[in-house]
Simulated scan of single mutants.
Amino acid sequence: MARDTSKDRFAAQNRKARHDFFIEDTLDAGMVLTGTEVKSLRLGRVSINEAFAVEKDGEIWLLNAYFPEYESANRFNHEPRRPRKLLLKHREIKKLHGQTERQGMTLIPLSIYFNERGIAKMQLGLAHGKRKVDKRATEKERDWKRDQHKLMKTRSRAD
């Protein structure tokens, strides 16, 4: 079977994160996974919609991510909702800890992808939550930009 030649192949995405949060900064992190978790990830069945990351004992952990069991694994399967360690540099962990503690921000997983070497990576977003008013304003702005694009398209055709 031919390998996927695209640079970033998404295995899972949290599409609702940009709707529910203001993403201030993003960073990539490695993950400590078992073999059956990687196989489940390659099948694209992973859900990170309710997941979040926390700092504990100087390490970053991914909580509440759902990696379903790999059917062919038999008795060597993994636990679907176990905490998974994220691999970041010590300097990045300190920076994230300071921002989450002082500024009340949250670490949200935005996507899981395979890099060009085939290694699973996670894109984390440093975010703070949107209120209902903010969500409505964002939706209104998006609708206006879409209408504006349609108007420009029809105007250019008329010329």
Rank of each mutant, 00 (worst) to 15 (best):
R42I: 06
L33H: 06
G35K: 03
S40E: 06
E55L: 14
I23G: 02
T36D: 06
M31C: 10
G35V: 05
T36E: 11
L43A: 15
S47Q: 15
E59M: 07
V38P: 01
L62Y: 09
D28L: 09
E24L: 15
A53F: 09
L62R: 08
T34L: 06
G58V: 10
A51Y: 09
G44E: 12
G30H: 12
V32Y: 02
G58S: 10
R45G: 15
S40C: 03
F22T: 05
V38D: 01
A29I: 10
T36H: 06
A53W: 08
S40F: 02
T36V: 00
V32D: 14
T36M: 00
E37G: 01
A29P: 07
E37I: 01
W61A: 02
S47M: 11
L33M: 13
V46W: 05
V46Y: 05
D20E: 14
V32W: 01
E24Q: 08
V54R: 11
L27E: 06
L27T: 14
A51L: 11
S40G: 02
L41S: 07
K39H: 04
L27C: 14
T26N: 02
V32Q: 14
V32R: 13
F21V: 01
W61N: 02
G44P: 10
A51V: 11
R45I: 04
L27V: 09
